[in-house]
Write a protein that binds this DNA or RNA. Structure first.
Length: 712
RNA sequence: GCGCCAGUAGCUCAGCUGGCUAGAGCACGCCCCUGAUAAGGGCGAGGUCGAAGGUUCGAGUCCUUUCUGGCGCACCA
């Protein structure tokens, strides 16, 4: 497309030529011919080089670097470069619009690129964000001759008036061809924005909208952007911490907030139109309308008259009312609020209005909401109260499939939450969720739910073992803290571990580090309890006298551990915890979710790490002994080195802890050795070969302990 | 195109301000138990730390580039 320069002399001068016979033209290209009626300027890159060329007989201006491309594209045969100059020298030239009665200006623009086209960019401030911004800087009007219905208004040449813009495309091309301004015309495939639902192309029009200006100085002398940056930097806790960084970048670069939408439904912006066409909305008028909407619902805006809507409004008492305001002369405007303004006001309409207090402790959402709910709650709150509406922001990533791809119905890799709940149960799903590294993308597959189900059953079984073995503990024997437990006993070790885990889990919960809590709880159940404590305690639970001191001590400890463990599980597995809680406390006990943790202080003996180091060696030695035929560890005894006597205080517990029949501590030994006890008699009750087994009165083979327990 | 994030055993993840032969759980293999039993226990194998450069006596850990994936934003005159 050619735009003729108005002043040939000025154009010639820009290129350092003395004179030029013809008026050179400015060559632009566009994929939207219908926007040409709104052309007000042509942008050039000030730092680029531009050539004045004679192309097939007419003089025109093109970016030097694009000359070859242009020549090829338009199929020009003869191209002669007359002169060359910097883009900056072209700025300020004027040109005649090819079919509108006006002049345009050449302006400089940093957005001009040399990737496509001619290096001269058609600029219509009424039809695009970037053009609008450049135009604003250059003092150009936001001229948009296209009306709401997609047709031209009366400011365009007669042959376009009232025409639909899509119909106008061929008309414009024909007109330019006939007037000799069209250099070339071709099919060009490129991506163009479409409405996501109707799949129809959208167009850009500059229209009047309501904005929240983020850089305006407010009454307190601050700008919203400034307040927001400060809040992000100093006043909000981010989990994970990188959310701060991300939000900072967004706050720094965000444009003004466009609050208004033109849609058929939504919450109306309570603005009216004055007879002179300007808008009317003051704090007092908004409050008056709000009262009507509170009583009648937001539809009132559409069903009631301005007089009714403003029944509670007295212009005389509103210092901000326009002079001589007549309520009867007002017309309603029908823009609605951006839905984010509603979502972003929930701290006010939910928390403050109901007296629940602001700021909220926590806002929790996906990482996309740094720009959404998080930011758009922060801005209104800062504007209205000067303070953020939340203390902490917790962000999670998005669920993706097992290969890390996002889930979508069209790809067929999406999972339905309803199905998962049905197939695996809500508690298993909760357990899975609690263990996620939620800060990142969350891979999701049925396999992972299956694994969560296995882990859940482990917890459940561990609880069941504890509860099943304390049933006969007399109520008077129950001491929640079990503080009288000897630190060197098996129970003392378990209590010490429990106290440690409890402290860790409580801290993890308060840090929103649910995964850490989840892992600690699982390890405690799987390792500390199931693999070690429960296994070692079986002998005394099953074979000691029912009311024996040692057995009762273990039951008291197990009771304390079970109670504390259930409390810790309650936030993640409420129903499982409740079920266990009722088994522990009675069927009519109040739900455990209303309980708090009861921090216990208990330290196991200092020598326990040494005991467990010995245990590890013992396990390996026993494994090796299998090749010699000692496959059942109760067929074995152990001799364990204890040069400095560290293990001595634990001597009574070592056999049960290591699953063997007896343990001897030897100050002189260097390595753990396994003793073959298969030749010794085995107690028929405890299956131990502890050296005291002999035939009793009733003919049974029993150890001393077992004989005593059954009264033999 | 820009911003933020991630890429460590088959899987899910730890590895702080750089420093012993890179860890855990699950899954897997072998074995034990059969009074937690549609349970329980033991041992074991398994990793070029996405790739390529660079800094350093020394890098999974710092820098650069690059690839893959996620979220957001922008552009396509």
């Amino acid at each position: 497309m050619d735009f003729e320069t108005c002043d040939a002399a000025a154009a010639a001068k820009a290129f350092g030529l003395e004179e030029l016979d013809a008026r050179p033209s400015l060559m632009i290209w566009t994929t939207t011919p219908w926007t040409l009626p709104a052309n007000l300027a042509i942008a050039v890159g000030p730092t680029y080089r531009y050539s004045l060329v004679r192309m097939d007989g007419s003089e025109t201006i093109v970016a030097s670097d694009l000359l070859a491309k242009v020549k090829a594209a338009v199929g020009a045969e003869k191209v002669e470069v007359l002169a060359e100059t910097d883009g900056a020298k072209l700025v300020g030239l004027t040109y005649r619009h090819p079919f509108c009665e006006r002049e345009g200006r050449v302006i400089g623009g940093e957005h001009v690129t040399l990737e496509d086209g001619t290096g001269l960019v058609h600029t219509a401030p009424g039809h695009g964000d970037e053009d609008w911004r450049v135009g604003r800087r250059e003092g150009l009007a936001a001229y948009c001759p296209v009306r709401d219905d997609g047709t031209y208004d009366d400011t365009v040449p007669e042959w376009l008036r009232g025409m639909n813009i899509w119909d106008a495309n061929p008309m414009v091309i024909r007109h330019l061809t006939e007037s000799g301004h069209l250099v070339h015309h071709m099919q060009f495939n490129h991506s163009y924005p479409h409405d996501w639902r109707s799949k129809t192309p959208v167009i850009f029009r500059a229209t009047e909208q309501w904005f929240i200006g983020v850089d305006r100085t407010m009454k307190n002398g601050q700008t919203l952007r400034g307040l927001a940056k400060d809040a992000v930097e100093h006043k909000v806790r981010f989990v994970p911490e990188w959310g701060r960084n991300r939000m900072r970048g967004m706050i720094e670069s965000r444009p003004d907030w466009c609050l208004s939408r033109q849609r058929a439904w939504g919450l109306p912006i309570p603005a009216f139109k004055l007879p002179d066409g300007s808008a009317f909305m003051t704090p007092a008028s908004v409050r008056a309308v709000a009262e009507v909407i509170r009583q009648k619902g937001s539809d009132a805006w559409f069903t009631e008259s301005p007089a009714t809507l403003l029944a509670g409004y007295d212009p005389a008492k509103d210092p901000q009312a326009p002079k001589g305001l007549q309520v009867a002369s007002l017309e309603k405007l029908f823009d609605i609020f951006d839905v984010w303004f509603e979502a972003g006001s929930s701290w006010n309409s939910v928390l403050r209005a109901r007296g629940q207090g602001i700021p909220a402790e926590l806002y929790l959402e996906g990482s996309d909401q740094h720009r959404g709910w998080f930011q758009l709650s922060l801005l209104p709150a800062l504007g209205a109260t000067g303070a953020p509406p939340f203390k902490s922001l917790v962000t999670h990533g998005f669920v993706v499939d097992r290969d890390g791809r996002k889930m979508s119905k069209s790809l067929g890799n999406a999972l339905e939450v309803e199905d998962l709940l049905k197939d695996f149960g809500a508690e298993v799903c909760r357990w899975w969720v609690s263990g996620l590294a939620f800060e990142n993308d969350i891979r999701m597959d049925l396999e992972y739910l299956k694994a969560a189900g296995e882990a859940y059953r482990k917890l459940r079984n561990t609880l069941r073992f504890l509860l099943g073995n304390i049933g006969d503990l007399p109520a008077g024997d129950i001491v929640a803290e079990a503080v009288d437990t000897p630190p060197e006993s098996l129970d003392g070790w378990a209590m010490g571990e429990f106290a440690r885990v409890q402290g860790f889990v409580r801290d993890a919960y308060t840090r929103h580090a649910f995964r850490e809590a989840h892992l600690a709880l699982f390890d405690f159940c799987n390792d500390t309890l199931s693999s070690v404590y429960c296994a070692a305690a079986k002998d005394r639970l099953y074979c000691d006298r029912a009311d024996g001191t040692r057995r009762r001590a273990t039951q008291r400890a197990m009771n304390a551990v079970a109670e504390g463990l259930i409390r810790m599980l309650a936030p993640v597995l409420p129903h499982t915890a409740d079920e266990a809680w009722r088994a522990l406390k009675g069927a009519d006990a109040k739900s455990v979710v209303f309980e708090q943790h009861v921090p216990i202080t208990f330290a196991g003996a200092a020598g326990w790490p040494a005991v467990f180091a010995a245990r590890e060696s013992a396990m390996k030695a026993l494994e090796e002994a299998k090749s010699q035929g000692i496959e059942n560890s109760l067929d074995a005894g152990l001799v364990i080195p204890d040069a400095d006597g560290t293990l001595k205080p634990f001597a009574a517990e070592l056999a049960d802890l290591m699953g063997v029949s007896r343990v001897t501590l030897d100050p002189a030994a260097k390595l753990v050795s396994v003793t073959d006890l298969r030749e010794e008699p085995r107690c028929e009750r405890s299956r131990k070969r502890d050296g005291t087994v002999r035939e009793r009165q009733d003919g049974g083979l029993l150890s001393d302990r077992d004989a005593e327990a059954v009264g033999q």
